[in-house]
């Protein structure tokens, strides 16, 4: 059996009496897209934060590439190959698109503790950064400050930045948010082509995109995984229908 890239074992987090995540077990296998869906307030964002390392779990373990990283920092988890994009774009706002990618590349290139040679002077790194931008079609916008990019372009840049660290797996938090039908179609096709390179844990509200992409779907309600399986099975599940009552699942 191949080893899971990501394995959550009984992960829990409570805020006072509210159990935001409740003994969650979940795996992400190489080459798959595993979608995490659930109504608003189901605890998806909490779970993502626990996986990425922003929140310390009350109980349970996070295993990344077979290693227990439960007590690792965000940066250390990223260094191991966990790339992520944010629900709301999180970029270095005064840098250009290229500057943002260069920053993401430099971690792998020996880290921040190099004090003398200009980062910009590294032609090889610059070529690599341009190649990353070209993958999401932003090569013409490379020198623009991030603040002057459109919303859609910033979403794409987020994905490019996640790719720049050469991740083994990607944590994508609503990458389609605010993209519009055409943008969503393009990004869907792009992500499908990506999964052999990096497995994806996808949180997404766009159900068309989820069912088009996902190899497996887990449904989170009140912090618990109430169903997990292939898309067809989830579509038929009575429990899921109940949780989504009135929602546009089918």
């Amino acid at each position: 059996m191949t080893e899971a890239l990501l394995e959550l074992k009984g992960l829990s987090k409570a805020f006072g009496a509210l159990k935001a995540s409740d003994a969650v077990d979940l795996t992400l296998m190489p080459g798959e897209i595993h979608a995490l869906i659930g109504p608003n307030g189901a605890g998806k964002s909490t779970l993502i934060a626990q996986v990425a390392g922003w929140l310390h779990s009350d109980a349970g373990e996070v295993h990344l590439l077979g290693r227990n990283v439960s007590h690792w920092s965000v940066a250390a988890r990223a260094g191991l190959g966990l790339g992520r994009s944010f629900q709301v774009s999180s970029l270095a706002s005064e840098f250009s698109a290229l500057g943002n990618v260069l920053l993401a590349l430099q971690a792998r290139e020996g880290g921040a503790f190099r004090f003398w040679s200009p980062l910009r002077g590294n032609a090889r790194l610059r070529d690599e950064a341009m190649a990353v931008l070209a993958r999401v079609g932003l090569e013409d916008r490379a020198e623009l400050p991030v603040a002057s990019l459109s919303h859609g372009e910033r979403r794409l840049l987020e994905v490019a930045l996640a790719l720049a660290i050469q991740p083994k797996l990607l944590l994508l938090d609503e990458p389609m948010a605010g993209l519009g039908p055409e943008g969503t179609r393009n990004l869907t096709a792009f992500l499908r082509g990506l999964k052999e390179e990096a497995a994806i844990l996808l949180v997404e509200h766009d159900m068309d995109a989820v069912f088009a992409l996902a190899d497996r779907i887990s449904v989170l309600v009140y912090g618990r995984v109430i169903a997990s399986g292939p898309p067809e099975e989830i579509r038929q599940s009575a429990a899921v229908r109940e949780a989504y009552l009135g929602d546009s699942l089918c």
């Binding site: 990425a52 920092s73 965000v74 940066a75 250390a76 990223a78 260094g79 992520r84 944010f86 999180s90 970029l91 270095a92 706002s93 005064e94 840098f95 500057g99 943002n100 260069l102 920053l103 993401a104 430099q106 971690a107 792998r108 290139e109 020996g110 880290g111 921040a112 503790f113 190099r114 004090f115 003398w116 040679s117 200009p118 980062l119 910009r120 930045l161 720049a164 660290i165």
Partner: peptide, 30 residues
């Protein structure tokens, strides 16, 4: 020199957005 070097770029990113820096694999605190 410091500001243009990788160290300075990381430092400036820490000012703009620490989340971005950590997500890139660089711990902001050190």
């Amino acid at each position: 020199r410091l500001v243009a070097a990788p160290f300075g770029v990381a430092l400036q990113c820490a000012r703009m957005n620490e989340t971005r820096l950590a997500t890139s694999g660089i711990a902001p605190f050190p």
